[in-house]
């Protein structure tokens, strides 16, 4: 059972930061994960008075407050349009609407959970995290870091024109994913392929062999071939493991299939596989 000695609804980020420097302190996100543990929290830091629960759009970027609920992100029409429904797809399988009304984007990203659909999705976009002290970091760099004591303020998605796709494989519809895959194809040609729930946390698959070079300019047949080839390549490079839900061997097979499918989907190639 989660135990909390003191609950502080902070007035500003500085107060949150100062309180959070103690090891026993803990910033509250949506609490869906936190409350499952047996943690003894000295000071629970609540950011919910800081108006960090909104999504702002500017010319250059989307600025998603850390306290924005997964549900708000899922139903945001601007994000939906921008990502062609991929963000919604990455969220809608997470337990249920009530759960997503509680869980926050900040909590999901800060946790860097292996099973995170959200992290996988953001990795495939030109996205950043803004930390109170640490400033703005690329999502990939943040994902690699260990949890620190800084305060996550918001997530930023740069509005670089991009075609995205998100696919997850689950044993049942609202279970944790067995594997996740997100693809972002920027108009200028940059392609991001993220694979998560390996079951370790999501990583970007680097195109060391240039298989996807010029992907957006390819015709459908070429795209399909490149998607297939990159799927094979990803299966060779992405490290997978076993857990209750699936073996490493099955996951590696899925890397191939989901990467191929997501590339084809984002690339606008017809046919479901």
């Amino acid at each position: 059972m989660l135990k909390i000695k003191e609950y502080v609804k902070v007035k500003d980020l500085e107060e949150a930061y100062q309180l959070n420097q103690k090891r026993t302190s803990c910033v509250l996100g949506g609490m869906v994960w936190l409350k499952m543990g047996n943690r003894n929290v000295g000071t629970a830091i609540d950011l919910s008075g800081l108006h960090l629960d909104t999504i702002e759009e500017t010319e250059e970027e989307f600025r998603i407050g850390a306290m924005t609920s997964l549900r708000d992100l899922e139903t945001d029409a601007r994000i939906h349009a921008w990502t062609g429904g991929a963000v919604k797809e990455s969220l809608k399988h997470i337990v249920g609407v009530q759960f997503r009304n509680c869980a926050t984007v900040g909590g999901s990203i800060f946790g860097r959970f292996g099973f995170s659909d959200v992290l996988t999705m953001f990795l495939a976009m030109d996205s950043y995290v803004e930390l109170y002290k640490g400033g703005i970091l690329p999502m990939e760099e943040f994902a690699r870091q260990k949890r620190g004591r800084d305060i996550l303020v918001r997530i930023i998605i740069k509005k670089v024109p991009v075609k995205t796709a998100y696919i997850s494989q689950r044993n049942s519809k609202t279970d944790f994913p067995v594997l996740t895959c997100a693809v972002g194809i920027e108009a200028q040609g940059k392609v991001r392929v993220a694979v998560g729930a390996r079951p370790a946390k999501a990583v970007l698959v680097k195109d060391e062999k240039g298989i996807l070079r010029g992907f957006s300019q390819m015709d459908d047949q070429q795209k399909a071939a490149a998607a297939e080839a990159f799927g094979e390549y990803a299966a060779q490079t992405v490290v997978t493991g076993s857990n209750m839900r699936a073996s490493a061997q099955y996951r590696t097979h899925l890397v191939k299939v989901l990467v191929k499918r997501a590339l084809k989907q984002a690339g606008g190639v017809d046919s479901g596989n």
Binding site: I4, Y7, K9, L28, G30, M31, V32, K35, A44, D46, V97, Q98, F99, N101, C102
Partner: peptide, 10 residues
């Protein structure tokens, strides 16, 4: 709709 099991009364 929220899960009252995941919400502090506070």
């Amino acid at each position: 709709p929220v899960l009252s099991c995941s919400m502090l009364a506070a």
